[in-house]
Structures are given as structure tokens and as C-alpha cells.
Simulated scan of single mutants.
Amino acid sequence: MTHDTPVLRVAGRPVGRYVTRPELPARLSPRPCLHPVTTLAGTAVTELGPADHAHHLGVGVAVPDVEGHNFWGGRTFVRDRGPTELDNHGAQRHTGFQLLDPDGFVEELRWVADGSELLRERRTVAATGLDHRAWALDLTFSLTNVTGGPLSLGSPATNGRPGAAYGGFFWRARKEPRAPEVFTADREGETEVHGGRADWVALAGAGWTLVFAGATEETRRDPWFVRAAEYPGVGSSLASAARLPVPAGGTVVRRVVTVVADGRLDRAEAAALVRGAVGR
């Protein structure tokens, strides 16, 4: 383990690598990320900079609009113009670890754009074994407005693109010849699940299943952003119907727990593992 690329382990087994200082061009909104993340059997379940979306960076936190600054990467959706290349990219800068253990860490980051710090983040990540075929990645982030004035977080949806309310936690999954299956406790398919609220959302590929669960009341109120046919990815929607205001000194906190399992889980198995991972 190094301080720049710590490795997460479950019972001594490596399951994820965290890159604190990725060397990326500005248009990809450089930010720390987890990649590769694997199942206990060693199957990779993340992608970094895939050809279809070079700004998708494994597992992390990304917001496409922080008071007009892009912390997601790629083009910015501009109302009445559509996706547009702009020189408005910010960067998340790792400043240090408050805790660094084989099974997790607590990190501080600065969200900087145009030479000014907009947000200060504390990110807590923990890896926990669940059973012989599954473990859980527990990720909490808190974003504090340090500008001295009000900020707001937006998304392409709040800027005029329906169905594109991504922003917050995001997991870019492994792309395979066949699109993964998507299901919740009572819904099935990308169309039915995307944009809705659910205690958990499962993405099942060839020999692996990811089950995403909001672990706080605020997190559970966020709709899920889900993609399967175009590319495999699941994330939260901090700003769906309207921009999310963050007053001066205010903090936004979200916690997502993800079950990483070998094999194809059914609904009962997914729900049971989520209960064990989230503790409710």
C-alpha cells in the first residue's frame, strides 16, 4: 500500500485500488477514484476512461454543475444549445488521509475551479466482508460550501435535459457484450428503474452482481440514475427536479453502500445482503 494508491482488502484479499492523484487532462475533471474494484473471486466490476465515456472514472463522486463549474468531465449541457465543450472544468484535489487502514480510509479533498476552492469534501470508504461470495463498499461523502456565499448543485436535467439528473455518487461498471440486467425489489428493467426511488438497485452482469443502497434518509430520497443498454452505470441524483442549494458553510452528506457479489443474485438474495451491509 502507498499513500497515493492505497489498496482495499477484505480478509487480506485485495478488492479495490484507490487512485488519489490521477494524471488526466482538464476536460475529464480530474478526481480521485476507485479502480479496479473486483469481486472476491477477482472479477473486475469497474472501468476507467472507457472509449464510450472517457470521463467515467471507476467509482467516485462527481457533479456536472457546481455553480456553473463542471466536476463530472466531458461536455456541459447548456440549455437551448445541448452538450457543449466549455472551458469550465474543476478538479478534486486530494489533500490527505485522516485514517488509512487496509479495509478503508477517511480522506479530505478540495474541489477547485478557476483557482478558487468551492467545496471541501470529507470522504469515508470502508470494505466489509459479508459472506463467501460478497463484500460491501461503504462510501460516505460530505460536501461543505467554503466560498462564503451561496452555491447550488445542478445537473443536465435541471439545465433542460430530461432523464439526465446524474451527479453525486457514480459507479461505472464493466461493459460486456450483453447489457446487464437491472432490477429492484418490485421493478425490472432500465426504463422502469431509472429516475425512480428504491431502497436498492441491482445491476447483474455475466458472473457478478452489484446492489446499490442508500444508507440514510436523505440518500434514499435521491432518485437513481441508471444506464444499462448504452453503457453499465449506476449513480445518485443530487439535483433531479431542481438545483440543490448549499448555503455558505452548509454541508451536503450522502452515503451509498454497494454489495459486490460473485454470481447472479435473485431479489431475495440481494435484499438479504443489503440488509446485512447497511445494518437495517
Rank of each mutant, 00 (worst) to 15 (best):
M1T: 01
P6Q: 06
L8F: 10
G12K: 11
V15F: 00
R17D: 00
R21H: 12
E23M: 03
P25L: 07
V37A: 15
V37S: 11
L40Q: 08
A41I: 01
T43L: 10
D52P: 06
D52Y: 10
G58I: 12
V63F: 14
P64C: 11
V66D: 00
N70V: 04
F71R: 01
G73L: 06
R75S: 09
F77H: 03
E85F: 14
E85A: 15
L86G: 01
D87L: 04
T95Q: 14
L99R: 14
D101V: 13
D101R: 15
P102R: 12
P102N: 14
V106G: 01
V112Q: 08
D114H: 10
S116Q: 04
L118T: 01
L118H: 02
V125Y: 05
H132K: 14
F141Q: 01
S142Y: 03
S142K: 01
L143S: 05
L143W: 10
T144N: 00
V146W: 02
L153A: 01
A157V: 05
T158Y: 09
G160D: 10
G160C: 08
G163T: 10
A164H: 05
A164I: 01
A165V: 04
F170E: 02
A173D: 05
E176G: 10
P177W: 03
R178V: 15
A179V: 04
P180A: 06
E190S: 07
L203H: 11
G205Q: 13
G207I: 11
W208M: 10
T209A: 11
V211Q: 05
A215Q: 04
T216D: 12
E217L: 04
R220F: 05
G233D: 09
G235S: 00
S237W: 07
S237H: 11
L238V: 15
A239V: 11
V252M: 01
T258I: 08
A261F: 12
R264C: 08
L265H: 09
A271V: 05
V278A: 09
